[in-house]
């Protein structure tokens, strides 16, 4: 835990000094929301399911931009080797990188979400606490899957190109569930109707977190 905290602190420090990852996530997320908003005919109310789809398109594509950076930055000057030479365990490394990715996605969402409400109307402000729960659960799944995929692709030298090819097929069920549940929240449906979906999303996050802890040690070294 102490080792993981050291890496988290280091990543946050370097991330603040070079905020390209966060800025590119925000820029891409904003751009998608604006483009999709232009595509909606003026004066037309966006259906709850459509709104949920738009929100998750912006979040997913913004997230993938940032996910690869946290592991890829360790390739600069081969810093990853410095970490692997130390007593830091691969599990602690995975835990640290997953936490940083989770925080990065949360930060990006904190900026994307208000813009979504501004552009698509306050009708989507219904059920904010439940929406936050969905976002946090999906973020955990994104962070776990993204960190695992980053670790797998980190040693290939084509991290940027391979990561989306590996990440999107794996995370597709999570995105589908997030869209479904968010749509039901925007439609003001009872939580009992979507709680089982939320549980499956939590299970997805747990499975990929466990998988990450198990396999990172094998994939991160040659």
């Amino acid at each position: 835990m102490r080792y993981a905290w050291l890496v988290i602190r280091k990543d946050l420090r370097t991330g603040l000094r070079r905020p390209q990852a966060l800025l590119s996530m925000l820029f891409f997320g904003f751009l998608l929301l604006v483009i999709l908003n232009v595509a909606v005919p003026a004066g037309t109310a966006v259906a709850p399911e459509t709104g949920a789809g738009i929100l998750w398109v912006a979040i997913t594509f913004a997230a993938v931009l940032g996910l690869g950076r946290t592991v890829a930055q360790e390739k600069e000057n081969r810093c990853l080797e410095g970490l692997l030479l130390s007593p830091l365990s691969p599990e602690a490394l995975f835990g640290a990188k997953m936490t940083v990715n989770f925080l990065l996605i949360c930060l990006a969402q904190a900026a994307i979400l208000p813009l979504f409400f501004i552009l698509y109307g306050d009708g989507f402000l219904r059920g904010i606490p439940m929406l936050l729960l969905v976002l946090l659960t999906a973020n955990a799944g994104f962070a776990a899957t993204g960190t695992l995929c980053s670790a797998i692709t980190a040693g290939t030298g084509r991290n940027e190109a391979l990561l989306p090819m590996l990440f999107f097929p794996l995370v597709m069920p999570l995105i589908a569930m997030a869209v479904k549940v968010s749509g039901m929240i925007f439609a003001a449906e009872e939580p009992a109707r979507y709680s089982s979906w939320l549980q499956v999303m939590a299970a997805f996050a747990c499975i990929f977190t466990g998988l990450g802890f198990l396999v990172t040690g094998r994939v991160i070294r040659d």
């Binding site: 080792y3 050291l6 280091k10 420090r13 370097t14 000094r17 070079r18 600069e76 000057n77 081969r78 810093c79 080797e81 410095g82 970490l83 030479l85 130390s86 007593p87 830091l88």
Partner: peptide, 25 residues
């Protein structure tokens, strides 16, 4: 281990790099 790659973080100062690695050990 010393190679022709520095294994150092460009965004951190010399002191911060050494303190980080020292803390890992």
């Amino acid at each position: 281990f010393i190679s022709h790659h520095s294994l150092l973080y460009d965004q951190m100062t010399a002191m911060e790099n050494l303190v980080f690695y020292g803390s890992l050990y």
